[in-house]
Amino acid sequence: MITEIIFAIGFIILAPFIGALIGGIDRKVTARMQGRVGPPVLQPLYDVFKLFEKEKAVVRNEVNFYIFSYLIFVVFTGALFFSGSDILLVIFALTLAHAFLILGAYAATSPYSHIGAERELLQLMAVEPMLILAAAGFYMATGSFSVRDIALWPEPIVMTLPLLFVGIVYVLTIKLRKSPFDLATTHHAHQELVKGLTTEFAGPTLGMVEIAHLYETVFFLGLVWLFFASMPWVGLLAVIIVYFLEILVDNTTTRVRWQVMLRSAWLVALVAGAINLGVLTLM
């Protein structure tokens, strides 16, 4: 119990910094790929701090409530995950968090944020099956939904769930808002629909979204790591490789239409889920 709480608190305190570091390295690598120098590694942190220095301006007060709830639930999701709770609850908490984000964008009632919200909703719908199937896969592999048990499983789970792993990496692109799936909002200069989902969020409100994103990044990389939990260092290597791949994809593809995103993500989930779980059932 105590270790779990320590892990949860550790996550809550450290994740933004780790997330910022990852984000900074991401931007640095991206810049290098484009032959630029790129911003300082701590740039994401500066961005967040700056946002909290800005004026508190909103379209409607309610928006802040939704965004704050989003932040809280993302943190909660990650804390649940790193304290080794039930992975299904983790996924549902994440869905709840995103529902709040989407509601925030809806509540802003502007054309751009409205379309951003719809697109985010599509992204949510595209990703959700894969996450649930991955959880199901973990259960079939280890007999438990508890992240703790899964992490302590003696064999690398990726060997039993190779396809689900690929699927997770695929939807990771959507969740990390990387091109070609950065439909709802994007970190890049090449925006579409202004800033989509976040168009109406200014100053501290946007800051909360950014912080939540930092937490989310760490959480998702933790999820990737979970596939290799029995070999922590290999897992770390895998996380680095996966993230590098994401950056590569981010920089070499152009944004696709939502139809392509939804279809491909569902197809991947269906194929990966059906084959991987089917084989496990028959074995």
């Binding site: 961005d47 200069a189 925006q191 800033k195 200014a202 946007l206």
Partner: peptide, 15 residues
């Protein structure tokens, strides 16, 4: 490379 200074082109007045 303006991004060296952390400059990002947002295209959105609110940001």
């Amino acid at each position: 490379d303006l991004e060296r200074f952390g400059i990002v082109n947002t295209g959105n007045p609110k940001h």
